[in-house]
Amino acid sequence: MGGCFPCTRPPKSDEKDQIPPTSEKLKSKSSVDLKKQSSLNENQISSSASGRIAAQTFTFRELAAATRNFRADCLLGEGGFGRVYKGRLESSNQVVAIKQLDRNGLQGNREFLVEVLMLSLLHHPNLVNLIGYCADGDQRLLVYEYMALGSLEDHLHEPSPDKKRLDWSTRMKIAAGAAKGLEYLHDTASPPVIYRDLKCSNILLDEDYNPKLSDFGLAKLGPVGDNTHVSTRVMGTYGYCAPEYAMTGQLTLKSDVYSFGVVLLELITGRRAIDNSRAAGEHNLVAWARPLFRDRRKFSQMADPMLLGHYPARGLYQALAVAAMCLQEQPSMRPLIADVVTALAYLASQSYKPQNQTNQTASQLAAPGSPQTRVDLERRPPSGSERDRSRASK
């Protein structure tokens, strides 16, 4: 689980940008007021959501017992925010994942609070379920449902010998599920929520490879009314940040769409967003891919070699088309996440067997991001909320 860090030197900004403003509301089935937090304790967490937070509170002793005193053999992963352990709650016998935040690490009280509030109020099959939290003294721990297969990064970039490689159909299933999680944040939450830290290490997989978005400490409430963006300190992970956000600090829903495009490209190519071990000119995945998007004869070169050619040619090009549109440098040119869900749900629904692969040539298919591809996307039945469509027209 990788940590998060500023994508670039952050502009001067008031720290209150890191938590939901006092005057805004976050709703998921019901309207919940978020009160201003100046310090953190259990009473404040409970009152900040008008007593409606579903997450349980745990003592540090309970969570220490669940992890056998945080033994090394219970460690699942470690990142900039702290360590994650596998544990079993004595009260319910439930297997859980427990994140112990590093008291000297990158995630502070404000980010901890945001994560508790967001995951207590937002619920979707493609968002990780927060079971509870601990705020004993200076200890900060979060208790999540246990995701048996770990993160997408574990399978795509750091597979162990006992892990099977992701096949094409599974990759499209993961991409479609992650997009649905973003769609919920953008279209259902009111105000919309900007995830701000979409990356492979933050996409967790259950035993059936169903993906769930995790780590909401950097999430922000999106623009409301006539506002087109939220101005905030630039935070995220290098290689995934939208260029306009990294340069100006102006955050929009389309910033998430760009990050999703990077993840989709990782799924297609098997390459990391940033990989300094590769040859010069190939360190940055998006920079490497841009010229290839313009040459349909090279599309097959972008497929992950670990797929061993076992992918549908048309499906590959259509997935590349979606990735290319998400990675447009101009935010207004990127699709709404609802349209991305429509496209990827179709690709994920197409069963594929290597022996049924058709002999399609690249010349028979549209280039990603070409006028033909964009028209095809625009001709799909309208989807997404009225809010998204009105924002896209601005």
Rank of each mutant, 00 (worst) to 15 (best):
G82P: 03
Q350F: 03
S92F: 02
D215Y: 08
P312D: 03
M1W: 14
S92E: 14
F60S: 15
R272G: 04
G80S: 11
N276S: 09
C4K: 15
I194H: 03
N284T: 00
L63A: 05
L89F: 01
D376W: 09
G181D: 05
P243I: 00
P305G: 00
D187Q: 10
F58N: 01
Y133F: 13
E207G: 02
F216V: 04
S277M: 07
E90D: 13
E158K: 15
G105C: 12
Y352L: 05
R290V: 08
V257N: 00
A97T: 12
L40P: 08
Y352K: 05
L267P: 10
E78P: 10
L182Y: 08
P291M: 00
M306E: 11
P192L: 14
G384E: 00
L156C: 04
Y238I: 08
R68Q: 02
D138L: 12
A97M: 13
S30I: 12
R374Q: 07
T188Y: 10
T232P: 08
A54R: 06
P11V: 03
Q100K: 04
Y184H: 10
N284M: 01
Y317H: 10
N284Y: 00
E378S: 12
K220D: 04
A97Y: 00
L75W: 07
S259D: 14
P11F: 01
D154N: 13
R271L: 12
A287L: 15
D33K: 07
E78Q: 04
K180E: 06
T228M: 11
K35N: 11
Y146L: 00
E24Q: 02
R314W: 06
G3M: 13
C241T: 07
P312N: 03
L26H: 05
A319V: 06
E42K: 12
L152H: 06
R314G: 14
A392M: 10
P191S: 01
T232C: 12
G177L: 00
S351F: 13
K394A: 11
E42C: 00
Q139N: 09
Q44D: 15
S39D: 11
A49N: 14
P191E: 01
N227F: 03
R380Q: 15
I274L: 07
A287I: 11
E115A: 08
F260A: 10
S393W: 01
Q330Y: 14
A321T: 09
Y258F: 12
R334W: 14
V224L: 07
T361M: 07
Y240W: 15
L253F: 02
N276L: 02
E183P: 09
Q100Y: 14
K173Y: 06
G225Q: 01
S169N: 15
K353V: 03
M325A: 13
A242R: 11
F216C: 00
